[in-house]
Design a protein around this nucleic acid. Structure first.
Length: 699
DNA sequence: AATATCCGTATTTTT
DNA sequence: TACGGATATT
């Protein structure tokens, strides 16, 4: 099942209770291996190797249900998942088995969300203020940028690495616990010359975040890791959870592994589920070693393999298995399908990207007419912009779609502005928030903002920026005095009146709306976003909770734009392959199955990287239940000069060597609609001829 | 010192 | 398309 219902919908308690009593044998619906895993003896470590489509979610949900039925208190079960969506879906399913009332008490969420909860409670033990701020990667990058200009780095002739690159380097060092030099050498070789600068920046970055009680995603794990090393605290936390279950274990990193070990200090139940063939997050320092070495890390572990694939028809499995058979490192697995079909995956060659968009749309519509709703179809691709051309074509044809992994609501500048101000109310030591918020005032730029921050004593020990603000004891450029006073009034009003989160937004908007009207274009649209934000905030009573969720559980823009009525409608899903992990659709379309895109050019440095790209391709293929379409554009135009007909010829992905073509139906791609594509191409040729003529004349 | 504007160059995937 | 950096304008 793809998609999840929000808690308020779905089965009511009574429905479930009835189902529960009249239909007691939900365990019988599992195959022997799945049942083994779900009912495994309580405290021996358990590793479940679950191949693609082998009923992993069902098994995990059943185990949660079984534990609850055998008397374990739901609130002492911890379910760690890769995304919030996965957690909701599993608990929803468990709820269908044992009743939502019980299932909803299970502690579920991502490592980061759980780290947040534990740190709010136990943080003081490691000197962490309970009102610490959490910042997203963009905020981290901004802080890094601020530090870089403080340190006067990047003024050399050489171009200094981008802020987001430095943030990525830092993240990698922390999560893989590898030395900076080694990380640079292996993963960021073009930054080696800047190692000294990066080191200086990172040093400041760490120091300032600590002084300001600001944590980024990596810090959440790092601090939880540190917390769990404290003898007393470790046991207290470990005592809470009788059972820890981890999903997608192949995509956890070293720190997460150690956190898990610490959580099991009391030697209670631990179960991890994953598939090494679907490990696709090594760029986030995920380490397949975790799952491979689980039996070493957790003594006496039992291993159960799920190898029966219920999802894909056999020809899709055959092709997918062929792809994986060429992997350099593969671990014994024998996926056996249960669904037969005559239809092989379709390998569709098209003239170019425009032809691809046409072919995809036509196939989608053809399947729609045959009765496959859009919701049962998905378009997958390696990188976000790979779907740009298709999105235009879908819009032109009025085919509704939702893109996963697109721009997030909270990533929009105006939303960030508002959230920064709210965050500042919960933690006045947060320098980045001040820096952002102050510069919205007319007449205050980077320079003045720095001075004001220093004047307020932000991030300095024994200082109270809010008090300083109240006493009006800070130098402000004359041109900005009036607006600054207004700003101060808004902040102090929120501090004094302690409004609800929504109330705070309402108050701050009195100050912000005119400013946004001035500095942003299409301000009307942005103001509507703030209304949305206010509505979201209306569900919260705690401001700390609200700004925390905006950082670790941000609402997606698409969801918000879609709204509730839209959710009922039929729409196509567009997704990066990474975001498609764990999902399945009846019909899957994979774009740009050409070398350079899959595998991505930038990921072809080492054999290990190429292997990961291969697994990525495998993940894409195994999302399909009934029909798999792979699209291969024969040529790519260089985009630099739009009039030029210059192009290069593409190669089919190296993951489908000639010997494997027998697993596919080759389709020419010259469907009726290709007329459009042909005329586009003809126009290009004509233009080129005109250009050539003119060039010749004026030579 | 802040703000506007221009230009050249990009390394993907996400909690 | 955005970002980083430089240069011009207020």
């Amino acid at each position: 099942m793809f998609g999840y219902r929000s808690g308020s919908q779905g089965l009511s308690d009574t429905d479930v209770d009835m189902q529960d009593t009249t239909n007691k044998h939900w365990l019988d619906e599992l195959n022997p291996e799945q049942r083994d895993a779900a009912t495994h003896a309580k405290s021996t470590p358990l590793l479940v190797i679950a191949g693609a489509g082998t009923g992993k979610t069902k098994t995990l949900a059943s185990r949660v249900a079984w534990l609850i039925e055998s008397g374990i208190s739901p609130s002492s079960i911890l379910l760690l998942t890769f995304t919030r969506r996965a957690s909701l879906e599993m608990l929803d399913r468990a709820g269908q088995l044992v009743g939502p009332a019980k299932a909803s008490q299970v502690v579920g969420g991502t490592f980061h969300a759980v780290a947040n909860r534990l740190l709010r409670q136990f943080g003081p033990a490691i000197g962490l203020s309970p009102s610490f701020s959490i910042v997203d990667p963009a905020d981290s990058a901004d802080l890094i940028d601020l530090i870089r200009s403080d340190l006067n780095l990047g003024t050399t002739d050489r171009r200094f690495p981008r802020k987001s690159t430095i943030a990525a380097v830092y993240s990698r060092v922390v999560n893989s616990r590898t030395k900076l030099d080694d990380v640079l050498r292996v993963h960021f070789p073009w930054c080696i010359e800047d190692a000294d600068g990066i080191r200086q920046i990172v040093e400041q970055f760490i120091k300032r975040k600590r002084e300001q009680a600001v944590l980024d995603y990596d810090d959440l794990l790092l601090y939880l890791h540190a917390l769990l090393r404290l003898p007393g605290v470790c046991e207290e936390v470990a005592d809470r959870f009788e059972h820890v279950l981890v999903d997608e274990y192949q995509d956890t990193n070293l720190i997460q592994c150690e956190i898990l070990q610490a959580l099991r200090a009391r030697k209670r139940g631990v179960m991890v589920v994953g598939d090494d063939a679907q490990s696709i997050y090594s760029f986030r320092a995920a380490s397949v070693e975790n799952i491979l070495n689980f039996p070493k890390h957790f003594e006496g572990a039992r291993v159960i393999k799920l190898e029966r694939n219920y999802r894909s028809v056999q020809p899709i499995l055959d092709a997918s298995n062929a792809v994986m058979s060429r992997a350099n490192h593969q671990f014994a697995k024998n996926l056996v399908g249960v669904r037969q079909s005559e239809q092989k995956p379709r390998l569709v060659s098209v003239q170019d990207e425009a032809g691809q968009s046409t072919a995809v749309c036509e196939r989608i519509l053809a399947r729609l007419e045959e009765g496959t709703p859009l919701k049962q179809q998905a378009v997958l691709f390696r990188t976000g912009y790979h779907s740009d051309a298709l999105e235009v074509e879908l819009a032109r044809r009025n085919i509704p779609f939702v893109k996963y992994g697109g721009l997030k609501f909270v990533e929009a500048a105006h939303v960030k502005d508002m959230v920064a101000l709210l965050r500042l109310l919960t933690n006045s030591a947060d320098e980045m928030s001040w820096f952002r918020v102050l510069q919205l005032i007319e007449g205050i730029g980077p320079g003045a903002a720095r001075k004001i921050i220093a004047g307020l004593g932000v991030g300095q020990t024994n200082s109270d920026p809010i008090l300083t603000l109240r006493m009006d004891a800070v130098q402000v450029p004359a041109a900005a005095r009036f607006q600054f006073a207004e700003f101060a009034r808004a902040v102090l009003a929120c501090v004094d009146e302690k409004p609800t989160p929504a109330g705070a937004i309402e108050r701050v908007r009195k100050f912000y709306d005119p400013i946004f009207n001035r500095i942003y274009d299409n301000a009307a649209l942005r103001l509507r976003d703030l209304e949305q934000l206010e509505q979201i905030a209306a569900n919260y009573t705690s401001l700390v909770q609200f700004v925390t969720d905006m950082a670790i559980d941000p609402p997606s823009r698409t969801q918000d734009l879609a709204g509730k009525p839209m959710l009922e409608e039929d729409f196509l899903v567009l997704s990066t392959i990474h975001s498609a992990k764990g999902c399945e659709w009846g019909v899957v379309h994979v774009l740009h199955v050409a070398d350079g895109n899959i595998p991505a050019d930038m990921a072809c440095g080492t054999d290990a990287e190429i292997d990961e790209e291969r697994r990525l391709f495998y993940v894409a293929m195994t999302r399909a239940k009934d029909e798999l379409n792979l699209y291969f554009p024969l040529r790519y135009y260089f985009k630099k000069n739009k009039r030029s007909d210059k192009h290069s010829y593409a190669q089919l992905t190296r993951f489908i060597p000639p010997e494997h073509l027998r697993f596919y139906d080759a389709v020419g791609g010259h469907s009726p609609g290709a007329k459009v594509e042909v005329s586009v191409s003809a126009r290009r040729v004509a233009q080129e001829q005109v250009d050539a003529l003119l060039t010749d004349l004026f030579r």
